[in-house]
Design a protein around this nucleic acid. Structure first.
Lengths: 199, 199
DNA sequence: CGCGTAGCTTACCATCAGTAGGTTACTTGC
DNA sequence: GCAAGTAACCTACTGATGGTAAGCTACGCG
């Protein structure tokens, strides 16, 4: 089997095993077994257990960014951009099930490089939000935008976990809740006087 | 040295080592060494590596709850309760430095019991928020309050990490940012018509 | 055919969570 | 004072697991 295919297969199995057992309890031997290959192959391709986790995260993060930024691009007003981004975010999370949630929470534990990868992912999300919103800000208030974006990303992450335990909640409802909670406050950052004409 | 004292000392050292190395890389041997005691003592008192982590988390969580609920109780209006709680939260986080941040992020990785402990901590915070706010809600809209509280807790956690990297940010500023972002939206949950007379 | 190399293996090492069993020293009861 | 019990503590080990060394097989290419 060619390397690229094998790598994809390994990452898929790894994501599953990490999700099932948790990062610490997951053993490289088990992953290798399930792939139907010997352990050194994993090390040949990913370098280390942490490297394998990082690869899984990186792939998921790339896809998340693609999905959310596409959604935001397709919308026109800032409000709709944010809402569309949120919906696609909760959609993505739901589609990826616990695997995604676990990857996020697990990664921080590992070491600098996996933690860095997770951070980079959030950074992309916060950058996406703050840069999108900053387009509509009259003054260079982007300074305040960055921490606000942190709050949004963190809040959504948390809410996504909550939604996992309340499966009746739809991505649209989750997004709507976040919008109700923060949109007014967001507007005061984007545009200090609430002028409905702009958004 | 009596057991209670030794346990406190062990937890203090463990918190530090976990923060320095991360949970996975921290070794029980090193913790034992730094305490100046042999490894079986750690197992005698805490049962396992995870048990030690859980003990650290539980202690920090109890203190956090004490601090924030005291602050909220001391304030009178819902807005001031929330603001006071937020300030004391960011104060607490700052005082506990990275140790706290790491404990939060590390714990999820370990296993059900540590993850459960972390969840219990957040549950306490979200319960505190939603029950406090529900006191002022005219209708039993507590259903919506729970996910909103999740968003707040998650957003604050994330913002706290951000503040760690922007040390010029004071707890008051962080709390104020959160208030600006979410208070208006919160009011629409607490009281559908913004009647200043109540709060 | 000979050579390089991609894909893969067995067999091993080192580290570290966790344990068995023993020692010291202090308290308690007579 | 002294035996018994126990709390605090130790040395020395096991088992599991992350990670590695060295080699094997098969294919492409001159």
């Amino acid at each position: 089997m060619p390397r690229a295919d094998r790598e994809r297969q390994m990452m898929s199995v790894a994501e599953q095993v990490f999700a099932e057992r948790g990062y610490v309890a997951a053993s490289m031997d088990e992953i290798a077994d399930r792939v139907g290959v010997s352990k050194p192959m994993l090390y040949e391709y990913f370098g280390s257990k942490e490297g394998l986790l990082v690869a899984c995260i990186r792939q998921a993060r790339a896809e998340l960014l693609r999905v959310t930024s596409n959604a935001a691009l397709a919308a026109t007003s800032p409000e709709d951009k944010l809402r569309a981004g949120l919906i696609s975010y909760f959609d993505f999370i739901r589609a990826h099930g616990q695997a995604w949630a676990l990857l996020r929470t697990e990664a921080a534990v590992v070491g600098p490089s996996a933690a860095g990868e997770i951070e980079a992912g959030r950074q992309q999300q916060t950058d996406l939000i703050s840069s999108t919103m900053a387009l509509y800000a009259p003054t260079p208030s982007t300074l305040d935008m960055a921490p606000a974006a942190e709050v949004i990303v963190g809040g959504c992450e948390r809410l996504a976990l909550w939604c996992d335990q309340h499966p009746e909640t739809t991505p649209e409802q989750a997004a709507e809740l976040v919008m109700r909670l923060i949109w007014f406050g967001m507007r005061t950052l984007v545009d200090d006087q609430p002028s409905p004409g702009r958004g």
